[in-house]
Nucleic acid binder design. Structure first.
Length: 273
DNA sequence: CGCATTTCCTGGAGGC
DNA sequence: TGCCTCCAGGAAATGC
């Protein structure tokens, strides 16, 4: 569930706790959360110092000195926690990295859809396989992306096409732009493309400002909760009335995901001008 | 190659 | 109360 706004919030908070800290002992409890790229965390992390914690797409990137970065993919339930070493931990804490003094960095992930790995080089190394940032992509590049024939929902969820949107913000952006999720991207006219482009940016910015959306599993590093869920217009509202037109919000399947929409505000065939 | 579909995992919710 | 089934979804794997 952590999508771009949640990852951004986590990175910002983590940066405050971690900047300047030096990594110590690495304890791996579950190997399957470590993405194997030949670099052993126990070999490369100890002694490195945290420069900055940033975000790329939905990933949280801990930039290190000497050069390198520790990359977290949070999946559905991944959490990055800073705790005292003797603080209680449950069986879902899969990785522990000692910090200066008595603290440690923990990766906790109940469903284990997340992962963590080390990349050599600077922060850009954490971006492997990711498309452009939705808040940085140019209108022209976005337009080029929209010329594909692929179903718009699937395209927006594809991290290699554009990085950071997940199920929640995808549904919210499509609603705000009046685009039906099953529309082929290339079927959208210039007006719709422009509307979607600005809806994505507007919604992500609003969500970042609100500290993300808190549903079941997500918490910020310090345990605070975001508040953007109160702004959702379609996500999690199937069966309720559309706030714009009163029609019943539908839930369908698209790209293998439950997808929420207003059938009136997001007509499938029309509105492609 | 491009795109769609299936699979992985656990805890919470709801049925009975 | 307890047991069962279903559902959530990011992204890798598999299928076509």
């Amino acid at each position: 569930m952590p999508e771009l706004p949640e990852a951004e919030t986590i990175a910002t908070q983590l940066d405050r706790c971690l900047a300047g800290a030096r990594f110590g002992r690495v304890l791996v409890r579950r190997r399957d959360v470590i993405e194997s790229n030949g670099l052993s965390l126990s070999a490369v992390l100890p002694g490195r110092r945290v420069l900055k914690v940033t975000r790329r797409g939905k990933r949280v990137v801990v930039r290190l000195e000497p050069a390198g970065c520790l990359v977290f993919r949070l999946g559905m339930t991944g959490q990055i926690l800073v705790a005292d070493s003797d603080e209680r931990r449950d069986r879902h804490v899969h990785l522990r990295i000692g910090l200066d003094g008595t603290r440690e960095l923990r990766f906790r992930d109940v469903r284990r859809f997340g992962g963590v790995w080390f990349s050599e080089g600077d922060g850009a190394a954490g971006a492997t396989g990711l498309g452009p940032e939705p808040l940085e992509i140019t209108a022209k590049a976005f337009d080029r992306l929209m010329s594909r024939r692929r179903q718009i929902k699937a395209l927006l969820l594809d991290q290699s096409a554009i990085a950071g949107l997940g199920n929640i913000y995808c549904d919210e952006a499509l609603y705000a732009a009046g685009v039906h999720p099953l529309t082929r991207a290339s079927d959208m006219g210039p007006q719709r493309r422009k509307a979607l482009f600005s809806a994505i940016r507007r919604i992500l910015r609003q969500a970042i400002r609100a500290g993300g959306s808190t549903l079941n599993d997500y918490r910020t590093a310090s345990g605070e909760e975001g508040s953007f869920q109160t702004h959702h217009r379609v996500y999690g509202r199937s069966g309720e009335a559309c706030r714009a037109c009163g029609a019943v919000i539908q839930r369908i399947q698209a790209a293998g995901r439950s997808t929420h929409l207003c059938p009136v505000c997001q007509p499938l065939a029309a509105g492609t001008a």
